[in-house]
């Protein structure tokens, strides 16, 4: 009974979240997919300028950075995917030019670890809540010993009452 109430609450929360997401996406209209310009901007933010220190291609005014942005624009307009462009540039300039950690290999752990930690934390919270609920439930129920005590007390009280009556 308690569990089904919990499930109903979770379902309501999910339904509200889904509605919010639908309205948010609908509000974007036709721009669900990024335009070529947006893709170029996003990609230019993902590469470090090879000539400068600490600046992305998008931030730098260096000729080489501007050239990379021009090449990215050309590749995007030519139909290349983001992954293909990333691969082409990191293949040439080396992985160190990428400002986004790789999704595979040891570096890919930076994506996996937060998810794993989050899941473990959620599982721990769920376990604690269930245990707490069980304990509270157990405290609310009388044991046979308790019942026996109460019965004995009541019986004694009835006897006393009957004796006191004139």
């Amino acid at each position: 009974m308690v569990l089904s109430r919990l499930v109903r609450q979770v379902l309501w929360i999910l339904a509200v979240a889904a509605l919010v997401a639908i309205f948010a996406l609908a509000g974007r209209g036709d721009s669900l997919l990024p335009t070529n310009e947006e893709r170029v901007e996003a990609l230019a933010e993902q590469f470090a300028c090879p000539e400068c220190s600490g600046q992305s291609v998008a931030q730098s005014n260096a000729a080489v950075a501007q050239n990379i942005e021009r090449a990215v624009t050309e590749l995007v307009n030519g139909g290349a995917s983001d992954e293909q462009i990333r691969a082409r540039i990191t293949d040439r300039f080396g992985e160190q030019v990428s400002l986004v950690p790789a999704s595979s290999g040891v570096v890919g752990l930076v994506w996996v670890i937060p998810v794993v930690v989050g899941l473990v934390a959620l599982a721990a919270i769920a376990a604690v809540l269930l245990r707490w609920r069980r304990d509270v439930g157990a405290q609310g129920k009388a044991s046979p010993a308790d019942r026996a005590l109460v019965e004995a007390f009541l019986a004694e009280r009835i006897e006393l009452t009957e004796t006191d009556q004139p």
Binding site: P50, E51, V64, N67, I68, A71, L75, R88, R92
Partner: peptide, 14 residues
């Protein structure tokens, strides 16, 4: 004009 040759040759600085 597209910069692709310079990227393919990994030109970091002239």
């Amino acid at each position: 004009p597209t910069g692709i040759v310079a990227v393919d040759y990994a030109v970091a600085k002239v």
